[in-house]
């Protein structure tokens, strides 16, 4: 055994201490996560109900006349009840409600 080095065995009391500290830590982490999740859900609610930034259209605003290209796709042309190619004014369509999504396809 002379000259042979082994890792020292930890004292059993230290193990208990580690175990106890670990379970307290897990509880704390649980509480912390609960708070984070609560915070996140509140944040999400705020995002959904976010105020419309200044300058963007909101209830009661009028959007001036505009035109957009007629889609290339025949299904969409018939869906929008359009007849001609070229451009069209969505506001001139015979509908009660238009739901417009402003997006960027990238």
């Amino acid at each position: 055994m002379n000259g042979l080095k082994t890792n020292p065995q930890p004292f059993p009391g230290v193990c208990f201490f580690y175990k106890g500290a670990l379970s307290t830590m897990i509880k704390k982490v649980h509480i912390l996560f609960t708070f984070i999740l609560l915070g996140m859900s509140l944040f999400n609610l705020t995002v959904e109900a976010a105020d419309i930034p200044k300058g963007l259209p909101r209830e009661g605003d009028i959007i001036s006349a505009f035109s957009v290209p007629v889609p290339d796709n025949k299904t969409f042309i018939s869906y929008l009840m359009l007849e001609e190619d070229g451009i069209f004014q969505p506001a001139e369509m015979d509908v009660k409600l238009l739901f417009i999504e402003v997006l960027n396809v990238y």
Partner: peptide, 27 residues
């Protein structure tokens, strides 16, 4: 429509002369 971030959604109805009246919107 004021250069909104996207997606931005508008509910509107025709308001004559090619214009739209906004009924609701959300970002």
């Amino acid at each position: 429509v004021g250069q909104p971030p996207t997606p931005f959604f508008i509910f509107a109805r025709p308001y004559g002369n090619g214009r739209l009246l906004v009924l609701d919107s959300f970002l």
